[in-house]
Simulated assay, not measured.
Amino acid sequence: MASARLSAATWSLSAVAVGALLVGCSASADVEKKLSADKLATEVSEQLAATTGQPKPDISCPEDLEGKVGTTTRCKLTAGDGSTLGVTVTVKSVDGDKINFDIKADDTASPAPN
């Protein structure tokens, strides 16, 4: 039974990754040259949900995103079973106080810790 849950979670994470890769997720946020880690996590979660048609995933980002083209940060998507999927956020442009960024999920998930 545990493997069935893991398979479902892995499928769910794969659906998020495939959806993010196929659609070429992009998002933007109004900020003052920096987007807080919490706000970034919310923006990424909302964009992934909109792109995949799935509920908003649990996203955490370790640091603020500086509004400078080319800046990247890594966020983490955590599934209900504890498995994780890395998400890379890259600033593609800055228009005044608006940071536009791309979101790319990793191809494979990491299993839940035992």
Results as ranks from 00 to 15, higher is better:
residue 58 D to Q: 13
residue 13 L to P: 01
residue 85 L to H: 00
residue 53 G to Q: 10
residue 58 D to V: 08
residue 43 E to G: 05
residue 64 D to T: 08
residue 26 S to H: 01
residue 59 I to F: 09
residue 5 R to A: 02
residue 25 C to Q: 02
residue 16 V to G: 03
residue 71 T to D: 07
residue 32 E to A: 12
residue 20 A to H: 00
residue 95 D to C: 10
residue 110 S to K: 11
residue 25 C to G: 02
residue 46 E to K: 12
residue 32 E to G: 15
residue 23 V to R: 02
residue 7 S to R: 08
residue 52 T to W: 04
residue 27 A to I: 11
residue 80 G to D: 14
residue 13 L to H: 05
residue 99 I to P: 00
residue 10 T to A: 10
residue 79 A to F: 00
residue 16 V to P: 02
residue 57 P to T: 07
residue 114 N to Y: 13
residue 37 A to T: 01
residue 98 K to Y: 07
residue 87 V to Q: 06
residue 20 A to L: 03
residue 87 V to G: 04
residue 10 T to Q: 14
residue 25 C to F: 04
residue 69 V to D: 10
residue 84 T to S: 03
residue 101 F to R: 02
residue 45 S to V: 13
residue 99 I to C: 03
residue 113 P to F: 07
residue 105 A to Q: 00
residue 58 D to P: 03
residue 21 L to N: 05
residue 15 A to M: 12
residue 47 Q to E: 15
residue 55 P to Y: 12
residue 77 L to R: 00
residue 20 A to G: 02
residue 114 N to A: 15
residue 99 I to T: 07
residue 105 A to K: 00
residue 61 C to P: 09
residue 76 K to F: 01
residue 99 I to A: 02
residue 33 K to E: 03
residue 110 S to G: 13
residue 107 D to Y: 10
residue 109 A to M: 04
residue 35 L to A: 08
residue 37 A to Y: 01
residue 83 S to M: 10
residue 95 D to P: 01
residue 29 A to P: 04
residue 18 V to L: 04
residue 2 A to C: 13
residue 97 D to W: 07
residue 80 G to C: 09
residue 17 A to D: 00
